[in-house]
Nucleic acid binder design. Sequence first.
DNA 1: CCGGGTCAAGAGCAGTGCTCTCGGTATGGC
DNA 2: GCCATACCGAGAGCACTGCTCTTGACCCGG
Lengths: 224, 224
Amino acid sequence: MSAASLRARVRAEMTEEIKAVARRHLATDGANLSLRAVARDLGMASSAVYRYFASRDELLTALIVDAYDALGVAAEAAVVPGRFADRFRTAGHAVRDWALAHPHEWALIYGSPVPGYRAPATTVGPAVRVILVFARIVADAVATGEAQSGAPIGGALGGELAGIAEHVALPAPPQVVARTFAAWIHICGAVSAELFGQLNNTIAERREFFDFQLRAAVAFVAAG
Amino acid sequence: MSAASLRARVRAEMTEEIKAVARRHLATDGANLSLRAVARDLGMASSAVYRYFASRDELLTALIVDAYDALGVAAEAAVVPGRFADRFRTAGHAVRDWALAHPHEWALIYGSPVPGYRAPATTVGPAVRVILVFARIVADAVATGEAQSGAPIGGALGGELAGIAEHVALPAPPQVVARTFAAWIHICGAVSAELFGQLNNTIAERREFFDFQLRAAVAFVAAG
DNA sequence: CCGGGTCAAGAGCAGTGCTCTCGGTATGGC
DNA sequence: GCCATACCGAGAGCACTGCTCTTGACCCGG
């Protein structure tokens, strides 16, 4: 291994270390984490961190991409064979489990956007990863006849939905894309509602209630 | 009008003015608005604002309560007579319209919680107001037979749901409460997804797609 | 062995939330 | 009508933030 790559490796390790500490700080400071505090925890000057990330936003972007990827991996790992309802619910619970384990990273990607922050195009790729997991499960169910397609969707919306399907190379009609998207948004909303405190002092049986909503999503997607 | 109440009125007006300016700043700074900037816009020293709000969090709380109330009022104003599906969808669109008109206030109440901020108990009252609108619409539909109750829910979750119904004086069985809550969470998630940018570069026909989701929620709530 | 690239450190700027003190003004009791 | 009192605004100040710039040290390749 040449010296240059050794240097590069050290740099990569340092970058990972900064991200790890920043992720820890995410838990207490939320999206407006303190770069100086991160540097303090690493035992180096705040200005040194700028050698690795040009700005706080760039660090945030790195954390966001990592979070999308980690969620995608978690969902993909939960893809099991079996009946549609079971596959869908298993993936859904995997998403919730990941969110409960990494609540602040969930807030980073699905919470209200950081005021001054503008997400670069780099984040859209990892973002669709988790949705594709559900899309494939639904497409499989439609193929086997376990789920119906639903009433056709035409017009401008139908055209858009068809374009989305084509863009991710998913052979599905617009109405299936719409159902998948709607179901995902419901899942996303259910997890956010739980994490963001809307169920506080209201529902303690969170997993049970989440499963209730997952069954609702399954029924909606599969309905004729 | 006595002198004392005149003083109180001046104070109340000043308080409202501060909140109005803070609401404007919410649009650019998000949840971490600058108290100093608000004071600057008002042409007074930052320390003077502390005569009206003991801290930035207290100002935020006031804005949150106002936002919940405004959303509740908007939803209540959209309650119309008619068939269940129309009533529900009208209220749903009213919620979305309000959110589109006040995106930053929506983010304040349904977005990721502000890091250091802890919502006091004062906010739970106004928060349920909008949900009650939908709950009453669903309860009416169940009463007229337009909507079914669905499979009974027992166990711990059933008990909790029954407790909620009792708490808000709504004569509805647990499964109806669960359906209402799930539908509301779906609406909430759909609006948040649209506002928080998850539909960017994906779906432009937002109102159409939202209505698609509203119809899904209606079907879910009414299904046998 | 030494020049160029990389890195960390420190000072500094403008901004933040919040506290304290200091004067001025209006209020309410006598 | 007078005066103590409560209220209110302004300013200075503290500790903190993101970020920039300069300075000096290090290491690696030619």
